Amino acid sequence: MARLVSDLQHKWDRIYSQREAADPKPAAMLSQYSHLLPKQGRALDLACGVGGNTFFLAQRGLTVDAWDISPVAISQIDQRKGPADNIRTSVVNINDGVFAKNYYDIVTVSYFLDRQHIDDIITTLKPQGLLFYQTFTREKAQPGGPSNPDFLLKKGELLSLFSQLTPIIYHEEGLIGDASKGLRNEAILIAQKPAMLKPPLN
């Protein structure tokens, strides 16, 4: 397992080192639905990359924990954030049991899928907390994204993975209509943790 984590870290370090240092942009789930965010609270940007979601949340008054496996990505956030005191960065291996219970008002995940940590994400949300999740689907209108199906969502899968949460927004256009337009190859889920969790679907 340690070797796998090391290989994964090196892979993403290399990717982030080679990318141009443009200002990071938030995922569509945040830019399109920012009106659903609270005016204050604690947020987790999981697998944060270079911090597009992190900076977007911090600019709206939230205190953000930015986690990524890549020290290079975290270093780039640290360089950009300057003296901002509402962004806390950490190089994190999520397999180390790092999720606090009922801790975050907001959790964001974009372009990352590890199904074994779905329960951790649900657990770390506070009751009434919001999940913003966006990642790639197996149904592709155009080439792009991962090719490994382990990192791609089946149709409607986000809804079933987070069936314990109450869906607020679900967006998956698939191949319907003019596939050259709209948000294709991806699914978006915004969902709220209820005060009392319902049992997961079998």
Score class of each variant (00 low, 15 high):
Arg60Asp: 03
Gly61Cys: 03
Thr63Lys: 04
Val64Leu: 07
Val64Met: 06
Ala66Lys: 00
Ala66Met: 02
Trp67Glu: 01
Ile69Pro: 03
Ile69Leu: 13
Ser70Met: 06
Val72Ala: 12
Ala73Lys: 02
Ala73Gly: 05
Ile74Met: 07
Ser75Phe: 06
Arg80Pro: 08
Lys81Ala: 07
Gly82Asp: 06
Gly82Thr: 06
Pro83Phe: 12
Ala84Asp: 07
Ile87Leu: 06
Ile87Tyr: 02
Ile87Val: 13
Thr89Asp: 07
Thr89Asn: 13
Ser90Thr: 13
Val91Ile: 13
Val92Glu: 07
Val92Phe: 05
Gly97Pro: 10
Val98Pro: 06
Ala100Leu: 12
Lys101Gln: 12
Lys101Phe: 08
Asn102Trp: 01
Asn102Arg: 05
Asn102Thr: 03
Asn102Pro: 01
Tyr103Asp: 08
Tyr103Pro: 00
Tyr103Gly: 00
Tyr104Pro: 00
Tyr104Asn: 01
Tyr104Ile: 00
Ile106His: 00
Thr108Ser: 10
Tyr111Lys: 08
Tyr111Ile: 06
Leu113Ser: 02
Leu113Phe: 00
Leu113Cys: 04
Asp114Pro: 05
Asp114Leu: 13
Gln116Glu: 15
Gln116Thr: 15
His117Val: 15
His117Pro: 05
His117Lys: 12
His117Leu: 14
Thr123Tyr: 05
Thr124Phe: 04
Pro127Cys: 04
Leu130Gln: 01
Leu130Trp: 02
Leu130Val: 04
Leu130Lys: 03
Leu131Arg: 04
Leu131Val: 07
Phe132Leu: 15
Phe132Trp: 12
Tyr133His: 09
Tyr133Asp: 03
Gln134Gly: 10
Phe136Pro: 07
Glu139Asp: 10
Glu139Cys: 12
Ala141Leu: 08
Ala141Thr: 07
Gln142His: 15
Pro143Phe: 14
Gly144Phe: 14
Pro146Leu: 12
Asp150Asn: 14
Phe151Ala: 11
Leu152Ala: 04
Leu153Cys: 04
Lys154Asp: 15
Lys154Gln: 14
Lys155Val: 12
Lys155Gly: 09
Gly156Met: 13
Glu157Lys: 10
Glu157Leu: 12
Glu157Tyr: 09
Glu157Val: 14
